Amino acid sequence: MKLVIGNKRYSSWSLRGWLAIRQSGLAFDEVVIPMDTPEFAAAKADASLMPSGTVPVLWDGDVVVWESLAIIDWLADRVGRDVFWPKDDAARALARSIAAEMHAGFINLRRHCPMNTGQTYPAFALTPEVERDIGRIDALWREALHGFGGNGGPYLFGAFGAADIMYAPVVTRFHTYDVPLSDASEAYVNAVLAHPFMQDWYAGAEAEDWRLDRIEF
């Protein structure tokens, strides 16, 4: 397998694909292409590397899969759905729903609070639209944690899984911008940041030697 991603410091979608393949336990080669570079522009035009023009892209032999949820589903088919999704029907229904809501929504948070694992902005001003996104996410996390968390781990549905993978970039944003959260959600943020996969991602981001001025402010 080969996973094509962007900068670890900034690429939220890449983080999801990378966490998914780490969660699968399958061996893979990692191809990092820095964004906003001629190399990235060339990769977007190369169907043999990035046919969707976006990251992440997973190559499984000659089969190509893109979009984070599609990559999760492909890997779940390979290694077993229980590796990613809760066994309980009600828990799995909620996990799929909140993962899909993350995939399709929270545009204001994404736009105004770009992912940057190397900075913290404790005085960052949040717009009302961003605060609404934050409130919705906090409510979803509390619902999952109250109903299904604590069974096998500190994550949304106990054990680390697909829902946590989908919200991992949000966790980094909440840390970067010092977002106030409920006690339950704050504990969840700390648990995700302490996960070994996230520690490895942050270490990789720290080792990168390129920066995007539009995100460093």
Rank of each mutant, 00 (worst) to 15 (best):
E67Y: 00
E216K: 04
W74I: 01
V65W: 02
L15E: 07
H175S: 10
M50G: 01
D200A: 15
D60P: 02
V179T: 13
A205E: 02
D138Q: 14
W59F: 15
A41N: 08
W210P: 01
A41S: 10
I165N: 00
S48M: 12
K2Q: 11
A168W: 01
A45Y: 04
R132Y: 10
R136E: 14
M198Y: 09
M102T: 04
R22I: 03
V57T: 12
P154N: 07
D82C: 05
L49R: 01
Y177R: 07
R214M: 10
G53M: 07
I33C: 13
E131H: 07
F197N: 06
T117Q: 10
A27P: 08
A100C: 06
L94C: 13
R173H: 11
V57I: 09
A139S: 15
T120N: 09
P114K: 08
I137C: 05
A194R: 07
H195A: 00
S185Y: 01
S185M: 02
Y121C: 03
S48Y: 05
D29K: 08
E206M: 10
S97A: 13
R142H: 12
A90S: 11
A41K: 10
F148M: 03
H103A: 07
G204D: 10
W85T: 08
M50I: 11
A159C: 04
A139K: 15
D178C: 15
A42E: 08
D164E: 13
A70V: 14
P154V: 11
A104W: 07
G161F: 02
A207N: 09
F174V: 13
V57R: 01
P180I: 01
D88L: 08
R22Q: 13
I5D: 02
G158I: 07
A93L: 09
G118E: 12
P128G: 06
A45M: 08
Q119N: 10
L212R: 15
P169E: 12
A205F: 05
W66I: 02
I33L: 13
T54R: 15
L19M: 14
A162Q: 02
T176W: 11
T117L: 15
I107N: 03
M115G: 01
W66G: 00
E129I: 03
R110H: 12
K2S: 01
P180L: 03
L49E: 00
G105D: 08
A41E: 12
F28C: 07
A139V: 11
F40Y: 15
L140D: 10
I71A: 00
P154C: 11
I71C: 00
A70T: 09
S68T: 02
S48K: 12
Q199S: 11
D200I: 06
S185K: 01
W141A: 15
N7F: 04
Y121P: 01
V64H: 09
D164N: 14
W59K: 12
F157P: 09
H195P: 00
A99S: 15
H146G: 06
N108Y: 11
D60S: 10
I21F: 13
A125H: 08
L3K: 04
I165M: 09
P114F: 06
W141T: 09
P128Q: 04
R16N: 04
A194P: 07
N108Q: 13
L75R: 00
P128M: 08
T54K: 15
D200G: 05
A41D: 11
A100P: 03
A104S: 13
G152W: 08
A91P: 14
P34G: 06
D89Y: 11
A205I: 05
